[in-house]
Structures are given as C-alpha cells and as structure tokens.
Write a protein that binds this DNA or RNA. Structure first.
Lengths: 349, 349
DNA sequence: CTGTTAGCGCTTTCAT
DNA sequence: ATGAAAGCGCTAACAG
C-alpha cells in the first residue's frame, strides 16, 4: 500500500528501484512537470508560489531525485562531460595532472572521464573523436599526440585541447614552460662550472621532449657549453642504454638532465655500474619531481613543474572552446622551481 | 551548392558541423528512419531489400554516421559505460589494473571512464552512486572502499563490484589471491632459514592490506616463525618510519615484505641509513612488481600479481550484474609468481 | 504564477 | 518488406 511496496516484485529478485523522475515529483506535489523543472533548475523567472516551491524541494529530496543526465544532455545538446586521453604510463606526472583537471572540472560543474590508452602505441587523437560524435563528451583533452605524420590529421571539428603537447592545429595547446625548466637546469650546472652536459630524454616525436631538447641546445650554445642529446624510450631500459652510449662519447659530460622518472632509474643504474660517482663525477637532475627521489641512495635533485595548474588550465581552455568557441594557446609558467637534493655538485677538477 | 556549403555560416566563425542522424540517412535513401535503424543495428529480422540495405550502409558511411549514445541510452535504459573509481595514487598497480579493465570492456562493447579520487582521503563508495543514478554509467567498479564505519553503507541499489577490495556486501567482490602471494613470500624465506619476519604494509583499514597481514600471521604461526607487522601510510615516508620502528624491536627480523612500491623506497632508505645490509642482514620482498625494481642499487625481488586479469575479471563480473543481476565473489589466482632478484638471501649466521 | 506543447535522436511494437 | 507512432526524461518557448 505504501510506496515501498513498489520495490517488491514477484520472483524474489532484488528489483532495482526505478530512479525518481520529474514527473514523480510533479504528481505528488500536484503541479506540472515543467514547474518542477523550473524550480529544480533555479530558473531566474522564479515566479513560483513559495509554498509550492518548498514542497517541490522537499519532495525531490525525499525521493532522492537525481536529474537524468542523459535526457538533459539530449535536450540541451551538451553532456557536461569531457574525455581526457592520456598515455598509459607509470609516470607519476599524469596523476598530478589529472588531479588538477578533475578538481577544476568539478568546480565548474563538469565530469571528466579519463581514457587511458589501452596499448603501448598511442592511437592518433582522431580516433577519440567518436566520443564527442556519439555525444558521450563535449570535448577532448588530449595528451597523447605525437609529432608524426599519422597523428597529423588531429582532431578535426570537435572541441579539443592538447595538454602538455602541441597538436597540429594552432590555438589549442596548453603546455608548461619546458624551456624555462631546462634553463633552470642549465643555468644551475653552468654556475657550478660544468661545461659539458647531456640530456637523456624520451623519443624526439614527443613534443614535450622536443621542446626541452631545443631549449637545451639554445642554452648550451649561448654559453659555449657542449651538449649531448640521447633520445631513448621512456623506460628504465631506455635510460640505461642511453647512459652507456653517453659514456662512450667525448667530451664525457659532467652533468645530465633526465626527462622521466623511469629513465632516471636506468640512468642511475648505468652510472653505478660504470663506477661514475653521483654527484662526484656526474651531476644528475630529473625533470620529473617525485617523492621517491628523496629516498634514493643519493637523493636526486629535480625541477618541479606546475602539473596541477596545467590540468586546471586545460579544463578552463576546453570549457572556453565548448561554450564560446574561443581559442588561443596557453602557457602555464607557475609555480616552477628546482628541488635541490644531493645529486648535483660543482664540476670535478 | 554542395553539401559542404552547409558548413559555412555567416559571421565567419568555424561552425561546428552537426552530426549526421538517422533521419539524415533516411532522407537521402528515401526510406523511413526506422528502417535505417533496423539495418544499422543488424536487426535479426533482416527483411530489407538488399539494394536498400546496401544504400543505407553506403550513405551512413559516407555521412560518417555515429549513433548518438545519449538518445540510444535514453531509449534502451542502458549507457554502455562503466565508471571505475580508483584512489589517486602514484602506485603503478592501478595502471596495470586499468589496462586489463579497459581492454576487456572494449572487447565487450563497453566504455569505461576512470574517476580518480581527487583528494588524498577517499570518499565513501556511496558518493559515486550518483553516476549511475544520473544515468552516466550502468555500473561502478570500486577500488577505494575502506574498512571503516563511514564506508559501511556501501553502494546500495546500483550495480557495482569492488575491485581489489572487499566491500560491505557479499557477492560483489573481485580480488586477487593475496594470501597466496604472502605464502609465496613466507615459504620462500622460510626455506632460506629465516625465523623472524616483518611485514611493512599500508593502513589496516585497507582490505587488501588486512588480507595480506592475516595470511602472514597464519603462515608464520604455522611454521613457528615470529612476525612483526608495521602498518604505515603507503608513502616513502611511511615505509621509512616503519623500518625505524622495526629495527628497535626484538627479535629483529631478518626478512621483510613490503606492501607498496612507495613504501619500498622508504624501507630501503631506512635500512641503508641504519647500515643494515640487503640482503646480507635483511632480505626484502616487494608485493608490488615494477620494472624499476630491477634497476635499484640492489635489485629487489617481488611477487608479481595478476593485475590485468583482475581488471578483466572485474569488468566481466560487472557486466553479469548489469545484464542478469547475477552475483558471486570472484578470486583471481593466475598468473602469480615470484620475481627473483638480489634482495633475498639465506638467514645471516 | 503555471500549464501546454514540442521536440532532442533513437528504438521498438504494431500495422500494413 | 517497410512505415507510423509512441515514448525514454528532460527543457524551453509560448500561452494563458
């Protein structure tokens, strides 16, 4: 006889209770569903009898009403959701980036769903367009584009932003100040007397890597320092092999920047194996800040990047695209700083 | 005059092209939209003239038709999407778990959106119910439940599965064989003569931790070995402090299992600082397998868990719940193995 | 101040 | 073999 009876069904299966709809509320209160909609949406034309207003709110709460996002989105032509496509890596930078994006999105009334690339090989951004085309999301946050021809078509015709990478099209990039980070590193070791430096970083077709390496070339050239660039897979193995190569070259560098945490483990292992002391013979700086760096055999200095800010900025940029179709590249500079630990020392005599 | 003219609009703004709908196809082909729907859905009642059939397919392809997931879901009362709620941690296990889930879901025609907890403190599972109630997802994969009263209400009334954790309700848990993993560890060090072992692991209110610790107690008790259990935050700092405590206790353990990679860094640092040699004075085993372990100063042995399989099994279980409301706990055992490196040795004399 | 109406794009039962 | 019609739950323009 009561409402709870409805929940019981023959067959004994725990019947899933149907969600409360606008019309359920309307019926109880005795008004039309559009009135309920207006009240619940806080329609500015608040011309509703205060009493009715209160009753609607009360009944909605009592029924545990939740707007059906599907129906609303279908009507409004907007889902309120974004898809964030990131490479499936163990690198901790993505966690921080995501957190920044998630929080900003929540503040601004959006949901972001993270789509990690299920395979080692990133798919071209274009292959995620379907998420918008099928109305699962209003726009795309893309962090997997590569500087290769297959990725060139980009994401045409759907609102998107490239995060921590530059895509093929202008005005859709949100990146950090990688050149600034590299300058911090080069400046720091230059001041300590180093004249030959190395960069161990990811593949050249990753835009972020490209920008770091370019900055390193400029920075070293302008100071008359020599630079060895080693591109390697962003793995422990990659870092390891890169250092073995590096040690064969002349002049042997005395300071080394490392692009990713995973590579760093390989770099350290190779150095240890070759009896190159850190920081005695080689200063090392990571471009990936992580808590674990402080706990390594010799704690490793790093440059900490504004990852959470990047994530937030990307969400802001995407919202701007969706809502007003406006664009423009954005550069996130702050806060960036060197985290000094024990892996950097003056140039050996 | 051509279709592409439509894309141009006065005002010069790049007008977003409207997605192709069933009715657009119907119009071109000259049939009713329901016919198009049937054809495109491969309706078993394939009573359609072959020629019409072909034309519909051709036009759909040519227009780049994508079904509107919103409208379809609204009608079908099913979104084809799951939400996977995971803690926002740097721990690499989540990456592997996600990959397994993502791939299996794709195989089975579902989309999974990852919702990382935006804060350090996990919210109770119940606070994600809204995703289903708002019809954004058909069900929840939950990996953040804690064994604390606030999390007890669980996720009532929406299809869900607890992944790598046991929730408050029976029949919804998909977990790995943590006791088996611990037995591997205990058996291994017991065979090497160790008599006093320690477990450094996360907080006791994490179910996975609880199960590992219980298994360790049983395993050690049955062999007459002593066991020290150290619960600590799953961070480098946590591991570090735990070991400092451990070293004060008597009997001082000669073998130590570590619950997470982050803790491991702290454990190793504390041991180094106290001049406890690994594996000379202390054997160390990680319950988090990761590539970086092979590159540490002394490469660390670990037990590798079937994480991808866990993710896949969780998706299967959730689909079963959504489609037929069937349930039952599942235990993923295979493949599990010890990865032998250099951090384990016979008991010191 | 509130009700009516007309869809959003798709699926599905029932006619024909 | 195909069309007509109803409706998923919500919003918004327009009446009254």
């Amino acid at each position: 006889m009561t409402a709870s009876d409805e929940a019981r069904r023959p067959g004994g299966a725990r019947a899933r209770r149907r969600a409360s709809r606008l019309v359920d509320i309307a019926e109880v209160v005795g008004v039309h569903v559009s009135t309920v909609s207006r009240v619940l949406n806080g329609d500015p034309a608040q011309s509703v009898r205060p009493e009715v207003y209160r009753r609607i709110l009360a009944v909605a709460r009592q029924q545990g009403y939740r707007p059906n996002a599907l129906a609303r989105a279908l009507k409004r032509q907007r889902t309120g959701a974004f898809a964030f496509v990131i490479p499936l890596l163990r690198n901790p930078i993505w966690a921080r980036l995501q957190r920044g994006a998630l929080q900003r999105a929540a503040e601004r009334g959006h949901v972001v769903m993270i789509m990690e690339e299920p395979t080692e090989e990133p798919k071209p951004p274009d292959s995620y367009r379907y998420l918008v085309e099928e109305s699962r999301a209003d726009g795309l946050l893309i962090a997997t584009a590569l500087r290769v021809p297959e990725h060139a078509p980009g994401v045409t015709a759907v609102p998107h932003v490239y995060v921590n990478r530059r895509g093929p099209d202008r005005g859709n990039n949100v990146v950090m100040d990688e050149p600034g980070a590299v300058r911090l590193f080069v400046g720091h070791v230059a001041a300590l007397g180093h004249r030959a430096v190395a960069m161990v970083d990811g593949p050249a077709d990753v835009d972020t890597v490209h920008r770091r390496v370019s900055a390193a070339r400029r920075g070293c050239a302008s100071r008359g320092m020599s630079l060895s660039v080693l591109h390697a897979p962003a793995t422990e193995e990659g870092g390891y092999e890169a250092v073995r190569q590096m040690l064969r070259r002349a002049p042997r560098p005395t300071a080394c920047g490392v692009g990713s945490l995973n590579q760093l483990f390989g770099v350290l292992a190779a150095l240890r194996e070759a009896s190159v002391a850190v920081p005695g013979d080689m200063s090392v700086v990571s471009f990936d800040e992580d808590e674990c760096l402080a706990y390594l055999e010799v704690p490793v200095s790093s440059v900490a990047m504004p990852l959470a800010e990047l994530g937030a900025a990307a969400v802001d940029a995407l919202i701007a695209r969706v809502e007003s179709d406006s664009r423009g590249d954005v550069l996130v500079r702050e806060p960036m700083r060197m985290v000094l630990r024990d892996s950097v020392a003056p140039r050996p005599a």
